[in-house]
Design a protein around this nucleic acid. Structure first.
Lengths: 237, 237
DNA sequence: CGGGATGTTGATGGCAGTCAAGCTCGGTGG
DNA sequence: CCACCGAGCTTGACTGCCATCAACATCCCG
C-alpha cells in the first residue's frame, strides 16, 4: 500500500492546497493515487522534453519551473511554494523543467490518473481551474515586467512581492532564492541584480544582512515608487 | 429576446470554441445567457480597473489583451483569434484591457452567470480548464522570449508562429497586427521591429509586400535558425 | 490629389550585458 | 579557536544592443 488515506487530515497544506474543499469522495480518490516524495535542494523533478508522467501538490519547500532557449539561457517561468500545484495536465511531452530550490516534499500523482480524476470529480476540476486562472494572471503580470520594465523597476517590484508574501512581517524578510535564480526570474544577469540591490541600499531604501539574503525595508514608499517608474525613467505624461 | 437558441448550430466557431463537446444541456444553457455583439477596430471591450462583468467567446476578428505600467508603457499579454475565450473568471476587478484590432464579433456572457454555469456544467469547466492550461503554457513560452531572447530572435520566432498558424499556406501570410502592436507584443519598439524585418529581408530570408504587412518566407531554415540563436549571438557551448 | 496614419531610415546615447577581479560568509579540518 | 577553502556575491571597466529622438517615405482613404 503506497498510500495511507488517513495522512491527509494532518497534512500541512490540507486547507490551502488543491485538496481543500473538493469533497470527501474526491479527496479519498486523490489520496488513493498519491504518494509522498521528498527531494533535495538542486534536484530535478521533471526535465523538459521528458514524457509527462507526473502531477503533484507541493507540501513544503520551493520549486522553480524553468524554460530555456536552444542557446542554454534559462528563464524561471514560475516559483512554487507550499500548497501550489505542480505539473502540466493535458500535455504529453513536458516543455518545462522543475527543480527544487531547497529540500521539498511533494504529494505525487500519476498524470493520467489525475486527469481521469479531473473528469470524475468536478469540484477538483473547478479548484484546479481557479488555480490555473490565478497562475495565468500572474504570468501575464510577469510578461509586463519582462517586456516593459527596467532593471531597477524589476528588482523593486520583486522585493515588494516578497514583502507582501509575508503578511505578518512585511518589512523584514528572507529572499528565498539565490542571486542567480533571481536573475533568471527577472530576465537579467546576476551582476545587474546585485547592482540594483546595492543601489537601493545606497539610497537608504532597504538594508541587507546575512550575506545579502535578508532584506529590511527601510522606506516602503520609496520602494513602491521605484517599482512603478524605476530610477532613470521619464516622468509619466 | 436577446438570444436565439438556434443560432448556435450554424455558428462559425461551433466546433472549435469552448462550446464544442460540452453536451446539449450545457450548450443551451450557455446559449441562453449569451448575446451577440459586434465591435469595431480600435474599440475597447474591457478597460483595466473596471468591474469585471463580462466573459465571451470570440466568434470572429482579433482582440489584443494588454497590461500597462503606471508610466503608460503597454505590453500585449495575449492575442485572441476566432474561437478563443475572452475574460477573467473569478476576478472581481479587471487588470487587463481588451481591445479589438479589427471588426470583431463576440458572444458575450455575464460573468457571474457564466461562473455559475461552470459549477453546474462540469464539461464546460473541463473545456475551459484545458484552454486555460494551454494559455498558461503559451504565456510561459512568451516569458522565455521576453526575458531571454534578443530582438532578432523575437521577430523571427514571431514570424514562425504566424506561419505555423496558417497550416495551408505556411510560406505566405499576412501579419494581422500593426508594427506598433507587434512591438508591444514582443516587448520592443516600433523602430527595432522595423529594422529586424528589414534585416531579414536584406539577408534574403523573407520578402515583404503590401506595405510590409504581407510576408513571404523565402528561407525557412534560416528563419528557424534566427529564431533559435539570433544573428549576433554567441554560439552555444 | 491631398493629408494623416503608418512604416522606414538615420544618428546618438544610455542601460544593461559581458568579462574579469576581488570580496564575504559559512563550513571544515587542523 | 583559527586558518583555509570554495561557492555565492559584489564591484569595476568596457562594450554593444536597443531605446530614443528626428526626418523622411509610403500607404490608404476620402
Amino acid at each position: 500500500m503506497t498510500s495511507t488515506p488517513d495522512r491527509c487530515p494532518d497534512c500541512d497544506i490540507r486547507l490551502n492546497a488543491l485538496c481543500a474543499g473538493i469533497g470527501d469522495n474526491a479527496l479519498s480518490a486523490l489520496s488513493a493515487i498519491g504518494r509522498r516524495r521528498r527531494i533535495g535542494a538542486g534536484q530535478v523533478l521533471v526535465w523538459a522534453g521528458d514524457a509527462n508522467l507526473l502531477c503533484a501538490n507541493l507540501v513544503s519547500g520551493i520549486l522553480k519551473v524553468t524554460a530555456s532557449t536552444a542557446g542554454g539561457r534559462e528563464q524561471i517561468v514560475g516559483l512554487l511554494f507550499a500548497g501550489d500545484f505542480v505539473g502540466q495536465p493535458f500535455v504529453d511531452e513536458t516543455t518545462l523543467t522543475v527543480t527544487a530550490l531547497c529540500t521539498s516534499e511533494l504529494c505525487l500523482y500519476p498524470r493520467e490518473r489525475f486527469e481521469r480524476l479531473l473528469t470524475e470529480a468536478p469540484r477538483l476540476g473547478h479548484a484546479l481551474l481557479r488555480r490555473t486562472m490565478a497562475s495565468l494572471n500572474e504570468a501575464r503580470e510577469r510578461m509586463l515586467t519582462l517586456g516593459q520594465r527596467s532593471a531597477p523597476e524589476r528588482v523593486a517590484a520583486f522585493l515588494l512581492n516578497l514583502a507582501d508574501r509575508t503578511p505578518d512581517a512585511p518589512t523584514r524578510f528572507e529572499i528565498p532564492i539565490s542571486r542567480g535564480d533571481m536573475a533568471d526570474f527577472l530576465g537579467m544577469t546576476i551582476e545587474t541584480v546585485s547592482r540594483q540591490l546595492f543601489h537601493l541600499k545606497a539610497m537608504g531604501v532597504i538594508a541587507l544582512a546575512r550575506g545579502g539574503r535578508h532584506v529590511i525595508v527601510v522606506d516602503r514608499v520609496a520602494l513602491e515608487h521605484a517599482a512603478d517608474r524605476g530610477s532613470g525613467r521619464l516622468h509619466a505624461a
